[in-house]
Amino acid sequence: MVLTLMINGDPVPYHGDPRRSLLEVLRDDLHLTGAKDVCGEGFCGACIVQIDGVPKVSCLLPVGRLAGAEITTIEGVSNSETLTAVQKAFLEYDVVQCGMCFPGMVLSMTHFMAENPSPTRAELKSAMTGNICRCTGYERIIDALLSLGSNGLGPVEEVRP
């Protein structure tokens, strides 16, 4: 099957088996290795990307269904000069350890914070179900997100400190 994928704003031609997962195509063909290949089963969230702005697990998305969709990976949320508010908060609160979960965590929680600018701790915990972090114990991730306060996501990008 031949189709065009729209990845981080750029059209990318794809020629191959439409049942391959978006995760395989991102990592193996396009060398966009931000989305991590961990469980391959939908449980861990390390492979989460946004499809038309909505977080989904790329390991269970066949590329053949994605023609015309806007795909945003962690490589597309900011550039080397800038960070989003969520990324900045994660950096300030020093919450990233091994980093395997973080691309998915950023894409999930950015969407959640945009829809729920003043969440409670409990709401953040349930929103984080499906983004497994084996290192941090979650509490600091939650503190970082709560620090965004009523400003929510604020300006989309801020200059790297």
Binding site: G42, F43, G45, I48, V54, P55, K56, V57, L60, L61, S108, F112, S126, A127, T129, G130, N131
Partner: peptide, 9 residues
């Protein structure tokens, strides 16, 4: 059931 991302799929 499941997780937010799976519930959307």
């Amino acid at each position: 059931s499941a997780t937010p991302a799976i519930r959307r799929m």
